[in-house]
Amino acid sequence: MSRERDPGMSLIVKTITRLTVGLILLFGIYLLLHGHLTPGGGFAGGVIIALSLVHVMLAFGKDKAFEVLSVSGAKALEGIGALLFLAVALLGLAWGAFFLNFVPKGEVFELFSAGTIPVSNIAIACKVGAGLFSIFVALVIMKHEPTEKE
C-alpha cells in the first residue's frame, strides 16, 4: 500500500474506475451535445468531463491522468475554448449582431439544430472542463511543489 511503489488507490478502486470512467465521460459528452435540447449544456457537460479526469487522477495517481491531459494541454485547451466562444460571438457581429445566431436553426428537437448554440456549448465545455481540471491539479499538486507558481 505504500505510495512510492504504486501510486493511486487500491485494486478495487482501480477496477471500478476502469469500468466507470468511460461511462462518466460518455455521460458528460451526452449532456454537452444535447445541451440545446434537454437540461445540461456546456457547463454541466464540461464539469462532468473534468470529473472523469479527476476520477482517473484520484484512482491511478497524477501521472496516469497527465497521460490523458497534461497541465499545459489543459491550459491550451482552456484558451482555445474561450477563444472559440469569443469567435462565435464575434462572427455574429459580422452578420449584424454580437452573439447573433447566424447559422440556420433547423428543426426543434433535432440533434443538429439551434445554429451556433451547440458550438458555443462545446467551447464552454472545453473551457470549463480544462479549467476545472487545472484548478484541481493546482490545488492538489501545489503542496508537493511549493516553488512552482500557479
Binding site: 484548478i135 493546482a138 490545488l139 501545489m142 503542496k143 511549493p146 500557479e150
Partner: peptide, 13 residues
C-alpha cells in the same frame, strides 16, 4: 471559491 482556497493554501504555506 477556488481562488480563495488557493490563497488560503498559500497563506498556510
Amino acid at each position: 471559491t477556488a481562488l480563495m482556497v488557493a490563497l488560503a493554501m498559500r497563506l498556510h504555506e
